[in-house]
Amino acid sequence: MDLKLDHHNEDRLTIVEVEGEIDVYTAPRLRELLIDLVNKGNFHLLVNMEKVDFLDSTGLGVLVGGLKRVRAHDGSLELVCTQERILKIFRITGLTKVFGIYASVDEAKEAHGKDK
């Protein structure tokens, strides 16, 4: 499956919907979207990965790159993910300590609201 990307804003939060496979072939499209969003002043990003079938280290690199960009503006990049096979990659690489990972968009929004 190819990669499908969409995004919308809810209050101060930009929700990025990702569907399909994030690998060395498709990751540049996600990178471009994250860069574009940051360049347009969206510094609080929530990436919904519930429909991601595959994620490799190239995809992790793109997410880390996005996080570095938003943090430069005191922003945040958090994830929604409950799929064990995707979470496993974050655990293996230690990135669970770097990203906020939530079980649902609502949970992430609630946590984000408390941080305001």
Partner: peptide, 11 residues
């Protein structure tokens, strides 16, 4: 990050 690939494989 390029070294992450090997780390993931090892894991």
């Amino acid at each position: 990050m390029s070294g992450f690939g090997i780390a993931v494989i090892a894991g």
